[in-house]
Nucleic acid binder design. Sequence first.
DNA 1: ATCCCACGGACTGGATCCAATCACAAGGAA
DNA 2: TTCCTTGTGATTGGATCCAGTCCGTGGGAT
Lengths: 223, 223
Amino acid sequence: MTELQDGVGAASERIAAYLRDAILFGDLLPGQWIRQEEVAARLGTSRLPVREALRMLEAEGLTEHEANKGSRVPLLDQHEVDVVYQMRERLEPLALTESLPHLTADQIEHMEHVQARIEADVQLTEFLVLDREFHLTSYTACPSEQLVTTISRLWNSTQHYRRAFMLLSGPDRRWVVNSEHRLLLDAIRRKDPVDGERYLSGHIRRTRIELAQHPEVFAAPPS
Amino acid sequence: MTELQDGVGAASERIAAYLRDAILFGDLLPGQWIRQEEVAARLGTSRLPVREALRMLEAEGLTEHEANKGSRVPLLDQHEVDVVYQMRERLEPLALTESLPHLTADQIEHMEHVQARIEADVQLTEFLVLDREFHLTSYTACPSEQLVTTISRLWNSTQHYRRAFMLLSGPDRRWVVNSEHRLLLDAIRRKDPVDGERYLSGHIRRTRIELAQHPEVFAAPPS
DNA sequence: ATCCCACGGACTGGATCCAATCACAAGGAA
DNA sequence: TTCCTTGTGATTGGATCCAGTCCGTGGGAT
């Protein structure tokens, strides 16, 4: 999606950023093999930094590696995605509670701004980016590195299915998301971890259950 | 600890296994830099597979990488370890509930056998291995790959602090662990997820709170 | 004596070449 | 026709060499 800015940072980092975008924006679909040489040629480097980049992405839950066969975007079945959402239901409230006392007024203002854009702009791709931004911002003040990176991994690995779901559910239920976000934001403003955890886990749980009613999202793609 | 079995599997996998053991058994301490060349010379390979191995370990939460400076075992502060334990309190009961219906009689028998050895053998290193084996076995039938690997990462990253804690708390409270394990095992035998989650989260929570009373475990090691 | 800059060693990062492995397709035998 | 086997092309895995970066050290100037 975004073009590669050459010269900035280490090559492996740039390649990782390029592939990360390609996966999160849906240019690379689950199950699709990622050929090292192809990526290297596309970005004008050797295969070596590509290999390093693929390992980094693996650590972020964006790819999986098979010996002598290569890397690909993981293909999850419906139950696995359901469990990931259950993991989020349990971990994200913890992250919120840990983050809440350290959240600055600026960061809360940023969430307000992001939510306003979510309500104004209904483009799918933009929504996915902003929704992610909204939630992850609320965890930025969390003092535990592990917790935040684990949650990021969970978001990463289910991004494709979130997009497919939003695509066929349409904007009809978008108002529910907005209401939940508003209530969550209010609890954060009041620095109330109890209400925060309640609205957050409810938000994730409702999404999980609605997603469970759309098994067609998990139809095997053509090989 | 265990010697490298040369010729078996890919080099990077063997190196990863070697380093993994070194970290989990405490030969490599948190904060300690891992020199690629040193490892390569020690194992008779070039630096390249060592780099790959370090990326793999990073994905497992065993090392962290800094650009142009190298990899090292992450150094966690007391609060971060506390949060990791809280994550375990929330995730492991979920894994148990997911695994429970699919656990075979053989696997439960294996847990019984491991627990018997825990009660018999009080060696520290052996205890750490067996305790890990006991819990992870109860999750092996969990159908979600992500959940199990995430939990493994959490165990990995806190292994050193678990050892340090057991070392200075001594075997006095070992009977508590055994009672908790026995109750958990009984709930698993009865295929009762409610009791299983209760005993499991209690087990982890008690450990977390006892660990919180030993801040000396987190004293900065000499540079 | 103290601060600054330049040099050097040590280490990681990247490129190229070669080896090993796997998948697939074509051909032969039952 | 169907199954097994074998060979070939494509792709990943590994080794060696070279470039880039960081950090500490030592000399010189103020």
